[in-house]
Computed example of a mutant assay.
Amino acid sequence: MTPVRDLAAFEWPASRPARAFAWRPGQRHRPGLAFMSATGRLHGFKSLAERRVLLALDFVGGMTEVLSQPFTLKFTTCQRPVRHTPDFLALTRGTALLIDVRPADLIKPDDALKFAAAQRAARAVGWHYAVVAGWRPQPWAALEALSARRRAMSDPLGLLPELLELTAEQSRRLGELVAATSWPTLARAYLLHLLWSRRLTLDLALPLGDESWIYLPRRG
């Protein structure tokens, strides 16, 4: 058992999930394993909503480790002792993000109590905390499409400098950009890879398609 004040100093990479991921006939949720390019390995999830969180974390990047079911938080209310296991702990350089996943229409008062305790524990050690209660349809559809090209790709035809040079000249619509390359069909697949790795960028609030504007990312 570890006090909350010592969570930040715990050796998380060597830890194991607080709860096992079980598969059995007739269960209503959809557990599984999802690959993350950020860590190069599979991560457990208990539902499709949690799988989406792993995909979003992979896209955001900057994670040094992502742990499923990282620990069980034990606390006591005026009425009873309570246990809560957050869904993910995403470690970054210098801090961490503790995450709970629950669709908004399924959050009950008891869940809200547990989330409040998890948020307080996270703040006590300098972490961030979030409850993922849903997704806007357009950004999620775009992430799903981009994730198909998230693994490393070779570039024997030199599409990378060509796509970057064309976009540096001016921002272009996706269909126009790939059509201006030497190999349009192959450039489309490589462009999705560049968007996933954020060598190029677009507005995820809008539908992804040939009319999407493609930009060079701003450098701070």
Rank of each mutant, 00 (worst) to 15 (best):
T2R: 08
A8H: 13
A8D: 09
A9C: 03
P13W: 04
P17M: 10
A18C: 12
A18H: 10
A18R: 07
R19I: 09
F21C: 12
F21T: 13
A22V: 11
W23N: 06
L33R: 13
A34S: 08
M36L: 15
A38L: 06
G40V: 02
L42N: 03
H43D: 07
G44S: 10
G44K: 04
G44Q: 10
K46N: 13
S47G: 10
L48I: 03
R51I: 01
L55R: 15
L55C: 10
A56L: 10
L57Y: 11
G62M: 07
M63Q: 15
T64S: 15
E65Q: 13
E65V: 06
L67H: 15
L73E: 09
T76F: 05
P81Y: 09
P86Y: 05
L91V: 11
T92L: 14
L97H: 04
L97W: 11
L98I: 10
V101D: 00
P103Q: 01
A104W: 02
D105G: 00
L106F: 10
I107M: 12
P109I: 04
D110G: 07
A112Y: 02
F115K: 01
Q119E: 12
R120M: 11
R120I: 07
R120A: 13
A121H: 12
A122P: 02
R123P: 03
H128E: 14
V131K: 01
V132G: 03
R136A: 12
R136I: 03
P139R: 07
L143H: 08
A145K: 08
L146M: 13
A148Y: 06
D155K: 06
G158S: 03
G158L: 01
L159F: 06
E165V: 01
T167P: 06
Q170A: 10
L174K: 14
S182Y: 00
L186F: 03
R188C: 05
A189L: 03
L192Q: 05
L194A: 04
L195S: 01
R199F: 08
L200T: 08
L208T: 02
L208P: 02
G209V: 07
D210K: 00
S212Q: 07
W213M: 13
W213I: 13
I214R: 07
R218Q: 12
